[in-house]
Every structure is written in structure tokens, then in C-alpha cells.
């Protein structure tokens, strides 16, 4: 995967954040946003097979996911678990992935996506997980969001 693909992923993610989650994301290196991964980190991944095979993922803070859920749900959950927040960020990645594949796979052939999966990780484990993968850090309304491409 080239740097070009990461740039496309950044563009798509910013558009989808605006359109679907009503959140404003700043691209890497623009607003001196948070540059470190959150503790704890939620690592969300999705993979695809078919005309194009691979995977993408995001690392977000629970705070970002809860903000997305709060924007979205009429009655955001307050206490009992993070079901809405986890589901919101999984669906966000699902939409980002579909739109990303549409940009990079221009001949309209079928790519099959898996359903997104989410794991809760320590900052250290998340750093190890994304180490060496093409990646870009966005600042989303004060929260870090790391996009990466599985290699």
C-alpha cells in the first residue's frame, strides 16, 4: 500500500466523519492536535477479499466513540456499557471502508467486507499493533484518531 492510499483514506475518513457522525476532523499536521494514541485505545479493524484484498483500521479513544454516539443517538447511553459507542465506531469504519474501496477500486468489481471487529487495548499494545503499518493521525474535535492500512 502506498502513501497515496493513506492520503485517500484520510480524505474519505474526514468526509465520512462529517457526513455520518457530524464530527470535524483535521488532517495530519494541521492543527497541532493530539499526536499520541489514547489510553485505553479501541482498535477497530475491517478486512476485505475479492477484487481487492487487504484491510484497514482505526485506533480511537473511547471519548471519541462516545462523542460520535452522543451526536447520533436521541437518547445516548450514560452508564450501562459502551454498546452504542462501540457500535457507532464500528459502523463508522464500515462506511469509511466502503467509500475508500470505491475510490481505490475504480472498475466497480465486487469486494467482500468482513464485519468490523473491536478490541480494547492498552496504549502500549495499540502502539505495537500499528507499528510499521502505513498510518496517519487525525485530530477529531480534540480526540486522536489513527487511521492505518493492514499490510
Amino acid at each position: 500500500m502506498s502513501a497515496d492510499n493513506i492520503n485517500t483514506l484520510v480524505e474519505v475518513a474526514i468526509e465520512v466523519l462529517e457526513r455520518y457522525a457530524f464530527m470535524l476532523g483535521d488532517p495530519p499536521g494541521t492543527k497541532g492536535g493530539p499526536a499520541v494514541l489514547p489510553e485505553p485505545s479501541w482498535i477497530v479493524t475491517i478486512s476485505f477479499t475479492g477484487a481487492r484484498a487487504g484491510g484497514i483500521g482505526v485506533v480511537v479513544s473511547p471519548g471519541l466513540a462516545r462523542q460520535a454516539a452522543a451526536n447520533f443517538y436521541e437518547d445516548p447511553q450514560t452508564e450501562d456499557g459502551d454498546e452504542q459507542a462501540q457500535d457507532a465506531v464500528k459502523e463508522l469504519l464500515n462506511i469509511v471502508c466502503g467509500n475508500y474501496l470505491h475510490r481505490v477500486e475504480r472498475n466497480g468489481r465486487i469486494v467482500n467486507l468482513t464485519t468490523p471487529s473491536l478490541q480494547v487495548a492498552t496504549l502500549e499494545a495499540a502502539t505495537r499493533y500499528v507499528n510499521g503499518k502505513p498510518q496517519a493521525m487525525l485530530a477529531v474535535e480534540g480526540h486522536p484518531l489513527l487511521l492505518f492500512v493492514e499490510t
Binding site: I14, E18, R19, F22, M23, L24, N71, F72
Partner: peptide, 19 residues
């Protein structure tokens, strides 16, 4: 800066929150 898009995104959020 995507100011136009951002203005629109925040407007849509307010509309959604207000039903």
C-alpha cells in the same frame, strides 16, 4: 480548511438533534 463543508456538517447535526 473545508469551512463550507464544516458549516454544513454542523448545521446537519443541529437539524438531526432537533428532529
Amino acid at each position: 480548511f473545508r469551512i463550507g463543508e464544516r458549516n454544513h456538517a454542523v448545521f446537519r447535526k443541529i437539524m438531526w438533534k432537533n428532529g
